[in-house]
Write a protein that binds this DNA or RNA. Structure first.
Length: 650
RNA sequence: GCCUACAUAGCUCAGUGGUAGAGCACUUCCUUGGUAAGGAAGAGGUCACCAGUUCAAGUCUGGUUGUAGGCUCCA
């Protein structure tokens, strides 16, 4: 009896097998097809390889190629396959790490040679060859000392460094396929022959252990799938995503441009973009007015002493443009609006009866972003923030904080933004006194109250240590660009430090002077990033209220230009953004251009319309929807604009 | 900032050391049309910039600037 063990299957049934059977044996006993589609197994909740023997009673779950976990394992195994190919082609290479990431994998190599595109092709061919060898992937286990000896022998210094960092009592595993051995926890695909549909995508540099003080390694990214169709679909998806890229659409739709003589990261808003900025500001102003904010305006330039007081020069200087000397005094362009707003708060005596004070401004700030991190409109050096600072008592904090969170969701509702993640960024102990103001207790206390507010507001969030602002924790809304870069869109930050540095106070009901809390918030981010995001979110197909050109009049021929101009004037007088296509072109050509420009409403006017005083309405994504009286059309479009309807954006 | 690649007409892109090209857009003319491209002609370039190699450089080399993909950092 001793050599029989009981294996519990996911459906609860129990299978008795010989001790030492592997998940592969168990899969085969159920069916050959199951074995074929299995890539690993979970035994009592722990992922193991298909051929690892099981020696005692356990529950089993086979990981088949359909699951996301299986895809991760495949990606990781493909990274090993690539590393093996690179090592065969470039024997001097030292391998480092090669994990799977979302739908992709990468591997970092230390090599005195830079890979180019034709090298990627060569490596891919070598990978296919190794795949055909169908090498069995074996798990090896070492003690720490054995592992160090083994990888020292292989001359893999980086692996030795990793092992040295692993705690003493752990068994160390590695995987061997043919001549290639890689330090790895596993599990892995059982043989290289199962890795068939992959593509190497790009090369880049990457610092060893992500630290810019370390050596720059050579990284190769790639992707891999279980079947050809899925690989093709993924590559197609990457191509499609590029078409939504705001840099491409922003140029095509004449929203913004950059000019070498103006400077990197300093966008120029073209008329279409300026119109959109204006619409955003109108939205923000009315929302904030209803939420009890007041508008202020402050200069772009300020004496250094203000930023000494605020702590910016201590904690934020590397992100600021260098000082300029004006009559012997140092001035800076502002990186944030808060110090100015603090001065406005401080411009008069405040009572608890005045609080909360909510000061709003779409102030333009300038930040010295490192050249390599500029990215279209999403990451720029001059930016106009949807900024406001709320000064409140500790008692008011939770309500104010949640009101800001509510404002986010109202905005997100308007734009139909559904894919985002709330992130609570807190301080790290190591950063105290450097990256963060040195107030350990206040940090803990503030972070606690923010967490409580979030829980009370039933807001789901993830936490990120070490990403707080220098003056306090923040709640960010993370979104992803068309090509998958992550960005912080909205932000909501709590400041427990700076108001006291500015000596800000309010008089409480007992006549005592107290320091207010400050909430920094930017639910619409900056105009630059928000519009960059919206371009991609809508793929340039903006809802009517936001579209730079809302309506284009298309006369069938020159004979109807007079009527078309009358129509245009009426739309113009109704404050609808209208243009007329008076080129000597056929209707089809005018429609085509309007479609390319993604103008939501096309109005065709000819003989019939002129006689009947109507318009033939063609809407993007809908086509010809029929003829309507002029006045009715204006009314309907007006109401669509006022309601901010998203007619096509789903 | 670091690694790598790229930079040719307004846009998209050909052009591997020997007279600078295409399509679209633009201008003019013809055409006056009915729901995604009517026709013809014309204009448009210091091949990003600065050096160098060469009889000769868009093409080769170096530097600068800008852009792209990453790394690091962030609204």
């Amino acid at each position: 009896m001793e050599n029989i063990i009981n294996i519990t299957l996911p459906d609860g049934s129990i299978k008795s097998v010989e001790a030492g059977s592997s998940p592969a044996d168990i899969a085969l006993s159920i069916g050959e097809g199951l074995l074929r589609s299995s890539v690993a197994a979970r035994i009592d909740g722990v992922l193991i390889d298909l051929n690892t023997p099981i020696n005692s009673d356990a529950s089993i779950e086979l990981i088949t190629s359909r699951s996301e976990e299986a895809h991760d394992i495949l990606l990781h195994s493909t990274a090993h396959l690539m590393a093996q190919a690179v090592k065969e082609l470039y024997p001097d290479v030292k391998i480092t790490i090669g994990p799977s990431i979302k739908n992709q994998f990468y591997y970092d190599f230390d090599l005195d040679y830079a890979f180019n595109d034709s090298d990627l092709e060569k490596i891919e061919i070598k990978m296919k060859e190794i795949s055909k060898r169908n090498l069995i992937v074996n798990r090896l286990e070492f003690s720490r000392q054995e592992a160090i000896e083994e990888f020292t022998k292989l001359n893999e210094d980086y692996k030795v460094e990793i092992i040295e960092g692993i705690s003493d009592d752990d068994r160390i595993s590695a995987y061997r396929q043919g001549e290639f051995i890689d330090l790895c926890k596993g599990p892995h695909i059982p043989s290289t022959g199962k890795i068939k549909y992959f593509k190497l995508l790009s090369t880049s540099g990457a610092y060893w252990r992500g630290d810019e003080k370390n050596k720059m390694l050579k990284r190769i990214y790639g992707t891999s799938f279980f079947d050809k169709k899925a690989l093709r679909a993924y590559l197609l998806m990457l191509e499609e995503a590029k078409k939504r890229d705001h840099r491409k659409l922003g140029k095509e739709l004449e929203i913004f441009t950059f000019d070498e003589e103006v400077g990197p990261g300093l966008p120029l808003w073209l008329p279409n973009g300026a119109t959109m900025v204006d619409e955003l500001e109108k939205l923000a102003k009315s929302t904030e007015r209803n939420a009890g904010y007041v508008q202020v305006r402050t200069p772009h330039l300020t004496k250094g002493i203000l930023y000494e007081r605020s702590g910016h020069l201590e904690h934020y200087k590397k992100d600021m443009f260098p000082a300029m000397d004006i009559d012997g005094t140092e001035y800076y362009v502002k990186p944030m609006n808060c110090p100015h707003h603090h001065k406005i708060y401080d411009a008069k005596k405040r009572s608890y009866r005045d609080l909360p004070v909510r000061l709003a401004e779409y102030g333009t700030c300038y930040r010295y972003e490192k050249s390599g991190q500029l990215f279209g409109l999403m990451r720029v050096r001059s930016m106009q923030m949807n900024d406001a600072h709320i000064y409140c008592t500790p008692d008011q904090f939770k309500d104010e904080f949640l009101a800001v969170c509510k404002m986010y969701s109202e905005y997100f509702e308007i734009f139909g933004i559904e894919k985002y993640q709330m992130r609570l960024s807190v301080h790290s102990k190591e950063g105290l006194g450097d990256k963060f103001v040195d107030e350990p207790e206040l940090w803990e206390q503030t972070e606690k109250s923010v967490r409580e507010a979030l829980v009370e507001g039933k807001i789901d969030f993830v936490e990120s240590v070490g990403d707080a602002a220098f003056y306090g924790p923040k709640i960010d809304v993370q979104v992803w660009s068309a090509i998958g870069k992550e960005f912080t869109l909205a932000t909501n930050q709590v400041d427990f430090a700076i108001p006291s540095r500015f000596g800000l106070t309010y008089t409480d009901e007992h006549g005592k002077e107290l320091t207010p809390l400050c909430i920094h918030r930017a639910p619409l981010s900056t105009h630059e990033r928000f519009i960059g995001f919206l371009i991609e979110h809508f793929a340039g197909d903006f809802p009517l209220w936001l579209a730079p050109i809302q309506v284009i009049i298309i006369p069938v021929s020159e004979k109807y230009h007079t009527y078309a101009n009358e129509v245009k004037d009426q739309f113009f007088n109704s404050e609808i953004r209208v243009e007329m296509d008076d080129r000597s072109e056929k209707v089809g050509a005018k429609i085509r251009l309007a479609e390319i420009r993604k103008i939501p409403v096309m109005l065709i006017v000819g003989e019939r319309e002129m006689e009947e005083q109507t318009l033939s309405v063609r809407r993007r994504h809908e086509g010809d929807i029929g003829s309507f009286p002029l006045n009715l059309t204006i009314e309907e479009l007006k109401s669509e604009i006022i309601s901010k309807s998203r007619r096509y954006s789903e």
